[in-house]
Amino acid sequence: MADFSVDRTLDARGLSCPMPSVKTALALEQMDMGQVLEILTDDPVSKKDLPVWAQSTGNELLGIKEEASTIKIYLKKA
């Protein structure tokens, strides 16, 4: 994973499908082009769904990290 700084963190832990994607869309809407959003989730589906969401909306997936039960997903607004 390349170096980048996180501009905003979205805590979506505890939420189930489709809320992490909805919250991600709403959070990115308020951010500027090129900024990085960190999404925290414990929903296993989000690990698959959010990269697909990023691809279909044209936003860049920078990486996925797993720490204990928390999945951290990094998206760059495009």
Binding site: C17, S21, V22, L26, W53, S56
Partner: peptide, 11 residues
């Protein structure tokens, strides 16, 4: 509504 909100989140 799950499908509707997910699709709306995808633009």
């Amino acid at each position: 509504f799950v499908i509707a909100t997910a699709a709306a989140s995808m633009g």
